[in-house]
Amino acid sequence: MNRHLLSIADLSKEEAISLLDTAAELARVTETPVKKLPTLRGRTIVNLFFEDSTRTRISFEAAAKRLSADVINFSVKGSSLSKGESLKDTALTLQAMGADGVVIRHPASGAAHRLASQKWMSGSVINAGDGTHEHPTQALLDAFTIRENLKERSGDLMGLNVAIVGDVLHSRVARSNVLLLQKLGAKVTLIAPPTLLPVAVNSWGCNVKYDFDSDLNSFDVVMMLRVQRERMEDAFFPSEREYARRYGLNAARLAQLNSRCIVMHPGPMNRGLEISADSADSDKSVIVDQVKNGVAVRMAALYLLLGGE
């Protein structure tokens, strides 16, 4: 594996599967009384968050601590686009503190790439979400969750039919998942209003549909994306009501899903907008599993990036 985890595009299929296998083994270990492994003892991991995301930060923090790493949380208030400390100066600070790994969440697409490609610091960089670009560990934990539920916990995702529904245009989760799920052999269908799809979406190799109701029972996985309410003001869709009606996962659509289909959501959910409460809480929902699996997948990523020389 590379020294950094910036984009799913940097992982080969074999590396991705190996990461999932490692995560599976770590998940088993952490189910035993063993809560903590000494693997990264003496290593310092900085959670560098330029955006509030308590759940992602906590997940990385738990993963790092279970591997005995020292964790420093570094929150930079406000967007870096407003005048404040620059990414470069922050990186130089981290270098001075001797960070072995930096987990970065940033509102600008490509921020993790910049951190990794400039000579500002020498540690490994893990992209924990950069703008509307990618969120690789989210995609890995999603693939892991799909594999646990539908693929007997091993191998690839060949033959599975995955629908990703909602604001694909602004979703880093969607970008990473499109790359990873296809790499692992799944067939991906994007379902969204045309305004919330990139104009060049046909270059992604997915099926694209504007209608959520047709062939609903053909999906093995329905992954709902978070819709930000601000999008409405930018005229991406007319109203929340219309969005929920046309693209929300409600009880009627839930009933049409096939018996083995699972429902996913990266969180945080807008209940009643992209997903109804009964869908989120149904027995098809694996949303809580996703959160739990996040820790094991992030442990695997940290181990594979920082465990070796």
């Binding site: 490509g110 950069d130 703008g131 509307t132 670009h133 880093r172 990139p198 104009v199 060049a200």
Partner: peptide, 12 residues
């Protein structure tokens, strides 16, 4: 705005 912006998540 095109294939590259779609992949990079940079506004087109």
């Amino acid at each position: 705005e095109g294939e590259v912006s779609a992949a990079l998540g940079l506004k087109g």
